[in-house]
Design a protein around this nucleic acid. Structure first.
Lengths: 288, 288
DNA sequence: ATTAAAATGGTAGCGTTCTGTCATAAACAT
DNA sequence: ATGTTTATGACAGAACGCTACCATTTTAAT
């Protein structure tokens, strides 16, 4: 099922270069071959560096790239980046045509950010964080401003998968739930904090309070957050800058969904049972 | 003997950045973290692109790199290249070592769903829907259950971009806002409904009520929804099934963000002004 | 609160990269 | 051999990325 990103004969770049109509000239062949062989490090090259390494002149490189359909070396680099997304995600190139617009660029970056989440779940801290959420006797969730809703939905959806999950708004009397209860001193508690840099002033003290009470803290935040790592080992970064008017919260939502999926995976039979029970529960509640 | 080309905590770049004597300033910390998180694609970046993505100025990036011991971004790229040669890792599989796993599949499908949004944006109804939202004198937003939070966040974020946006919970006395006011009978109103099939029983009557009051209705829903198209021309479908325990709402969030971006684009100067005014507004409100 | 120090951003200038125009060289056909 | 086409390179202008100088803002210290 997987395409082979490494095999040169299957690389989209190679395919594109080979498909140039009318064959290649000697210099062009040299350039093309060099490009394919060095595809991995193309991003670090520059037009003239390629020229000198292949022994042709700068302008020939430029011309060749344009003939191959790229908009200069910069365009080739962009295409390379986009091709990554396409190669691994789309069954065909059915979207190519659509993705040239401004929105297309935003969508591409969002998709890329989603794929980049693979890095996060790969971290050693990831399974530990999932364990912390799955094993805790009680889970608190919080988030502010324009991602408060994501935090609330996360709470609802996590509640389908495991019990004792509570959204916490620190501003309407929220932290009272945390008053240490000695009757249940042995219970473990976990806080999931969703955070974005522009709105984060309130987050730090909450995390510190939670830590002080012996809670585990899982923090999902954007790339710009720098304080979180000092407070907890369970910090996961999501790319949110997509050059739109506002940041994108889509990838963050995806990550929350993955967390839920993984927590469910820690106790599959229980989770499935809860899901089975869920519709009747809803019906009983009318709508909400 | 094992090479860990991707593990952030072992990367030579990360090591070097961490070892800077005298600690990092706030901006520097942001830059450093961003560099580490995006090391895989650094080759495709440029000084100013990094600056814009991290929210600092070009010159701060330049200064920081010099302080870190690199000779500008070019020097950093050269160092990276040297490291890459050793690691034998192609940027093509930077994410995908683990994408054969179950989570990998989920991420891929989510990313694919995001790209597939290009189809929705391409529909003729799309610009019309954006117009309806942008031009309306008043915009109502609603959504239930596990996507209610998305609807609320959409309300908050759309409020940054244009005024008179209101989240509407039809169950706590919600529809009173709709009582026709003859003083403002000429005002146009628009409803944005976010919907998912499993929870949709309540949505239809709301839409019909809105239509009866002469409102435009924009509906964002999943692939399974069949009734919406009969009620409004502005229906957009998002793929939500990713074979996880629960549906994925990430792509839907992305689509809402795109809507906001487009609405902002309809009145750029006003939108930019609103964004500029936004931080003070927030501060004035304390936190929420 | 006031002052000093540091950090950051804006503007402008330099250097580099990229591309358009023209000229030269090579390949090819007759 | 000659003329024609094509490929390649040299030069220059445009565009962009990078850094030096100065102004402004932020932070820390008293």
């Amino acid at each position: 099922m997987n395409d082979q990103p490494n095999t040169p004969e299957e690389s989209p770049l190679a395919a594109r270069l080979c498909s140039i109509s009318g064959g290649l000239t000697k210099s062009e062949a040299i350039i093309a071959q060099w490009l394919v062989l060095n595809e991995a490090t193309l991003g670090l090259e520059t037009g003239s560096s390629i020229a000198s390494k292949t022994g042709v002149s700068e302008i020939t490189v430029s011309r060749f790239l344009k003939r191959a359909g790229y908009k200069g070396l910069q365009g080739l680099k962009e295409d390379l980046q986009a091709a990554l997304v396409h190669a691994h995600v789309s069954p065909a190139d059915r979207y190519f045509r659509l993705l040239d617009s401004e929105i297309g660029a935003i969508l591409k970056r969002d998709a890329d950010a989603v794929l980049a989440l693979a890095h996060e779940v790969e971290k050693p801290a990831w399974p530990a964080a999932i364990d912390a959420i799955a094993a805790a006797d009680e889970v608190f969730v919080t988030g502010f401003q324009t991602i408060r809703g994501i935090a609330e939905d996360f709470t609802r959806r996590l509640s389908i998968v495991r019990g004792s999950v509570r959204f916490m708004s620190p501003h309407d009397g929220g932290l009272v739930e945390w008053i240490p209860s000695f009757r249940r001193a042995d219970e473990s508690r976990c806080l999931v904090l969703i955070d974005m840099a522009p709105y984060a002033r309130e987050a730090l003290p909450i995390v510190q309070t939670a830590r002080g009470l012996g809670m585990q803290v899982v923090i999902v935040t954007d790339e710009l957050n720098t304080w979180a790592s000092a407070e907890s080992p369970f910090v996961f970064h999501v790319a949110t800058k997509v050059d739109a008017f506002l940041e994108s919260t889509g990838p963050m939502t995806t990550l929350m969904n993955v967390i839920i999926h993984e927590v469910a995976g820690r106790a599959p039979e229980k989770a499935r049972k809860r899901i089975k029970d869920w519709p009747p529960i809803m019906r009983g509640l009318g709508l909400y």
